[in-house]
Computed example of a mutant assay.
Amino acid sequence: MVSFLIAYASWSGNTEEVAELIEETLHQEGMNVTKHRIGGGGPIPNPGEYDAMLIGSFTWDQGATPDEVKDFVADIGYKPEPVYVFGTGDTQFGGDLLFCNAAVKLARFYQSAVAPLRIEQSPRGVQESKVMEWSKGVLEHWRHLHELKC
Rank of each mutant, 00 (worst) to 15 (best):
Leu54Asp: 00
Glu16Asp: 10
Cys100Ser: 06
Trp134Pro: 00
Tyr110Phe: 11
Ala102Ser: 15
Val85Lys: 13
Asp51His: 06
Tyr78Leu: 12
Asp90Tyr: 09
Val83Gly: 02
Lys70Leu: 14
Asp67Lys: 13
Glu17Ala: 13
Pro43Gln: 14
Glu147His: 09
Pro66Met: 15
Glu120Asn: 14
Lys79Val: 11
Gly77Pro: 00
Arg143Lys: 15
Pro80His: 15
Thr15Lys: 09
Ala115Val: 13
Val114Ile: 13
Thr65Glu: 05
Val33Ile: 12
Val2Phe: 04
Tyr110Met: 09
Ala64His: 04
Met31Cys: 10
Cys100Lys: 13
Ala64Ile: 07
Thr88Phe: 08
Cys100Pro: 00
Leu54Ile: 12
Leu97Gln: 08
Arg37Ala: 09
Thr91Asn: 05
Gly42His: 11
Ile44Glu: 08
Leu54Lys: 09
Gly42Ile: 15
Arg37Gln: 09
Val73Met: 07
Tyr78Ala: 05
Phe109Gln: 13
Glu81Trp: 05
Arg118Asp: 04
Thr65Ser: 06
Gln121Tyr: 09
Val126Ile: 13
Pro66Ser: 12
Asn14Leu: 03
Leu98Asp: 06
Gly56Gln: 12
Val131Glu: 03
Gly30Ser: 04
Asp61Met: 14
Phe86Ala: 11
Val126Glu: 07
Ser3Pro: 01
Leu148Ala: 07
Asp90Ser: 07
Asn46Asp: 12
Ala7Leu: 08
Lys70Val: 05
Ala107Cys: 04
Asp96Phe: 02
Pro66Cys: 13
Val138Pro: 00
Leu5Glu: 01
His144Asp: 05
Ile22Gly: 00
Gly89Met: 07
Asn46Glu: 11
Leu5Cys: 09
Glu29Ala: 11
Lys79Gly: 01
Pro66Ile: 15
Gly137Arg: 14
Val33Met: 08
Leu54Asn: 02
Phe86Ser: 05
Ile6Trp: 02
Val126Gly: 06
Ala103Val: 14
Leu54Ala: 05
Asp67Phe: 03
Lys149Pro: 00
Val104Met: 08
Leu5Ser: 05
Leu21Ser: 01
Ile119Lys: 12
Pro66Gln: 10
Glu29Tyr: 00
Met132Glu: 10
Val2Lys: 15
Tyr110Cys: 04
Ala9Lys: 03
Asp96Thr: 05
Ala19Phe: 04
Pro80Ile: 15
His146Val: 07
His36Met: 09
Gln121Phe: 07
Leu5Gln: 01
Cys150Lys: 14
